Computed example of a mutant assay.
Amino acid sequence: MTEFPASLLLGYRDFMSGRYLEERERYRMLAETGQQPHTMMIACCDSRAAPETIFNCGPGELFVVRNVANLVPPYEPDGQFHATSAALEYAVQALKIRDIVVMGHGRCGGIQTALDPLDEPLSPGDFIGKWMGMLRSTAEQIPSTAIMTQAERQTALERVSIRNSIANLRTFPCVRILEERGSMRLHGAWFDISTGELWVMDAKTGDFIRPEIAEPALSA
């Protein structure tokens, strides 16, 4: 039998003696009543950009789907396998979530691949290459390094791809209809791993801005 990673077992031990102990009743309630998360988060697989950590959310608060480069494919009911689309369908239709956030991040390896495709696929299936092909036409519109640095190009595509994914969300009838009724809200966010800065997308202009975050009220 393959040995389970020791670091994970140690983490589990700390979890059980720490957070689980503190929130035991909440876990039990969630087990009995089911989940009712307030937000769906479409984020990247990158281990440095975990939404639950960034937004300090507890169990049952976020419904998270993570894929390479936090992409949302267009609506394609073609009988193939669509993991992100399935998660979106469940979040909207079953969980009745009405806020969806597409969150990208700085220094995304998937976005880098879209800008500068690998000479050779990582495997014969070339799953990453095909997945990032959704951004091929968009990446080609980002100016070359003769005008922008490589880092500037990457940040630009990281943010443009968020807007692209939000546009793709609107191709899903269940999302489009609810948004038109005013009962669904779509959001974009970009997290800078190196500084911890969070930028959010202005719904009207598509620009990314630093949000004003209210300080917690002092108790009397």
Results as ranks from 00 to 15, higher is better:
T2Y: 01
E3W: 08
E3C: 00
P5E: 01
A6P: 04
L8D: 03
L9W: 06
L9S: 04
L10R: 00
L10A: 07
G11D: 00
F15N: 01
M16I: 14
G18M: 10
E22I: 08
R26A: 14
R28Q: 14
L30P: 04
G34E: 09
Q35C: 13
Q35E: 13
Q35T: 12
Q36F: 11
Q36Y: 11
T39E: 12
T39W: 06
T39K: 12
M40T: 04
I42F: 04
A43Q: 00
C44K: 02
A49E: 06
A49D: 00
A50Y: 02
P51S: 12
P51A: 13
E52I: 10
E52D: 15
E52F: 07
E52Y: 09
I54K: 11
I54T: 12
F55C: 09
F55R: 00
F55L: 13
N56S: 13
N56W: 10
C57F: 04
P59H: 14
L62Y: 09
L62D: 10
V65P: 02
V65Y: 10
V65G: 07
N67E: 09
V68L: 11
A69Y: 03
L71I: 13
H82L: 03
A83W: 02
T84I: 13
A87E: 08
A87R: 01
L88F: 06
E89S: 12
E89N: 13
Y90I: 12
A91I: 06
Q93S: 14
V101A: 10
V102K: 06
G104L: 02
R107S: 07
D116W: 04
D119I: 00
E120R: 03
L122H: 08
L122F: 05
L122M: 10
P124A: 01
P124L: 00
P124R: 06
G125Q: 04
D126L: 00
F127R: 08
I128D: 03
M132E: 00
M132S: 03
R136T: 12
R136S: 11
T138G: 03
T138W: 01
Q141F: 06
S144Y: 02
S144G: 11
I147G: 03
M148L: 15
M148N: 07
T149C: 05
E152Q: 14
E152F: 01
R153W: 04
R153F: 03
T155G: 06
A156M: 14
A156G: 05
L157E: 01
R159S: 01
R159G: 04
R163Q: 14
A167M: 08
N168F: 03
L169C: 09
R170H: 08
R170A: 00
R170D: 07
T171D: 10
C174P: 06
I177G: 00
R181G: 02
G182A: 08
S183K: 14
M184W: 11
R185H: 14
L186A: 14
L186Q: 13
A189Y: 02
A189L: 09
D192C: 13
D192I: 03
E197D: 15
E197Q: 15
V200A: 09
M201P: 02
M201T: 07
A203K: 10
T205Q: 07
D207R: 12
R210G: 06
E212F: 04
E212T: 08
I213A: 11
I213T: 10
A214R: 13
A217L: 15
A217K: 15
A217T: 10
S219H: 15
S219P: 08
A220C: 14
A220D: 14
A220S: 15
